[in-house]
Design a binder for these strands. Structure first.
Lengths: 322, 322
DNA sequence: CTGAAAGCGCTTACAG
DNA sequence: CTGAAAGCGCTTACAG
């Protein structure tokens, strides 16, 4: 790499002056400016960001923590975040984290990341982490309002004659499982009785297809009556669909299934999965935007994303005989 | 952040000694060592990686460039790369790049990344880029041998009576489109005639569902006879399936469809897409492994990944009436 | 308008 | 075994 020193020598100015014109941070006479620019161009000089970071204390590098990178939902959030980041000169690294690992957060801090996006819906880390870079949390700084979508979903099911709706929870109930709470609320709102045996709690904190399959298997083994299943997210719903089909139960004739996230891929499933749109790309944008504000020390605003129930082919009238 | 200086003061040693024990890089008497460690622990000291990088010239940060982050295939590669990276103390950032953009590679260089993984199957960048960090390329350093899988695929189709097999190419033919070349070879090997009108070239370099839909539409508009379609990757195959279904053509009764990548998600499609397994996770691991070797200046070995045709429900006998 | 100098937090010969 | 000192490539008051 060519350094500032070489540019200074070629342009016959001091190293400081090179910085001044490169960063456009001080008035410089046009002639000097031109000389420096010419030298920069000729040598192909680019400032060493590591050195710059050491003095400015900012790396323009943020991290995004997810619990399952394979979930396309996170890819969309990431793309959203990157769209804002690249405009602002930031770069974002995604890391898969098993648990909310204090150690790995500390390592990120020592790497000098300017901020961290917690994209997984888990508990906060910076509460017991006084130091460390600014953080934003999905569910907190960007709040996703599932209540209306879940209300609509339950309403739609009730209208079609469903009374016994199961839920595959994924995230354990002892953690903040907003979607579960919203579901309980929605069930009440529609005058249904909530049968606790139709609620399958999460086990290992995973929320992927395998967990969906596991939870569905568990649900079936309970021998309770149900005509609809709401899974925490689309991946779990897909796992549940697989188990359901393999058991010989028809979708949607025998059981209706609903997911959440509105993954792009769903449009290619058959039957097409009913779900809730959560505008993941927009969530990513908002998270990054808020993080940048927080980094700059601006008063932290927060953002609410509305979600929306999308009824597709996996939902049908109860008792419909085909 | 607490600095080395504070640790030195608390432990009553020089700053150099702190480095020596933290990095375990020189013999230090046990007593001194203990004193330093105690101070480190008490203060919660972590070395500032930015400062360290400035002198060691390594950031243990690598970048991975992809053309479509939404393709789960890249997520698997990324996970593979990260599994090796985290063991070796590296962190990897993914960046979506529209074209093989020299400018963005230069920016990564000025950020001090230690290396770059080119995961998209596009042309090399470092050929006309003398400076810049070490790079590894999928298709070059990790070579994916599609020939056998594609041979098997064509063989399987021929056996089922197919004679006119179309291909949706995605990557333009003027770039290195290995899978297209392998396909041409395989068609020859099985004594078939290659009808150029059944080859749909890529348009914009995209290789996603939309491009698959576009290419399939284009293929149908040509009014040529065909009974099978091989798409560059699973995403394109899914786009093609959608268009096919919407046109009222049945899969696989009227047309067989084959993709490539063996995305996890395929197991949940119906009919299940035939594809080729490319061991994306393993590809990621190999890429990262090779990159680390290259960074260390070790003689660069290369790696071949074998692929394998997987016949599922989207392939059927030709002319089969149901 | 320009530059000499201090300093960012580290590593690592080198001398004691 | 320990530490004083130079240096990594920058930014930025400060003085001229």
């Amino acid at each position: 790499m060519v350094t500032r020193k070489e540019v200074a020598e070629l342009a016959k100015v001091s190293e400081a002056t090179v910085s001044y014109v490169v960063n456009n941070t001080k008035n410089v006479t046009p002639e000097v400016r031109e000389r420096v620019l010419a030298a920069v161009h000729k040598l192909g000089y680019r400032p060493n960001m590591v050195a710059r970071s050491l003095v400015t204390k900012e790396t323009r590098h943020v991290a995004m923590l997810v619990d399952n990178l394979k979930n396309p939902y996170y890819c969309e959030i990431l793309e959203g975040a990157q769209s804002i980041a690249s405009e602002a000169g930031y770069i974002v690294s995604v890391l898969s984290i098993d648990v909310s690992n204090k150690e790995s957060v500390m390592e990120l801090a020592s790497r000098g990341v300017d901020g961290i996006i917690f994209a997984m819906g888990s508990e906060r880390v910076d509460k017991y982490l006084k130091i460390g870079p600014p953080c934003v949390y999905v569910g907190e700084n960007v709040y996703m309002n599932y209540q209306k979508a879940i209300d609509d979903m339950v309403g739609c099911l009730v209208e079609k004659g469903h009374r016994n709706i199961a839920m595959l929870c994924g995230i354990p109930l002892d953690q903040d499982n907003i979607r579960y709470q919203n579901f309980v609320e929605a069930v009440k709102n529609h005058g249904l009785h909530l049968n606790p045996k139709l609620i399958v709690d999460g086990s290992n904190g995973r929320t992927d297809e395998d967990e969906g399959a596991r939870a569905m298997t568990e649900l079936l083994s309970r021998k309770e009556e149900f005509t609809a299943v709401y899974a925490l997210n689309d991946l779990m719903a897909m796992g549940a669909m697989k188990v359901t089909r393999e058991t010989g139960i028809r979708i949607p004739e025998d059981v209706s299934i609903i997911g959440c996230d509105n993954l792009n891929i769903l449009r290619y499933l058959s039957p097409a999965l009913s779900t809730m749109d959560v505008e993941a790309f927009q969530v990513g944008r908002s998270l990054m935007q808020l993080l940048i504000e927080k980094i700059k020390g601006e008063p932290l605003s927060s953002n609410t994303i509305e979600t929306r129930f999308i009824c597709r082919e996996t939902v049908a009238e109860v008792g419909q005989i085909i």
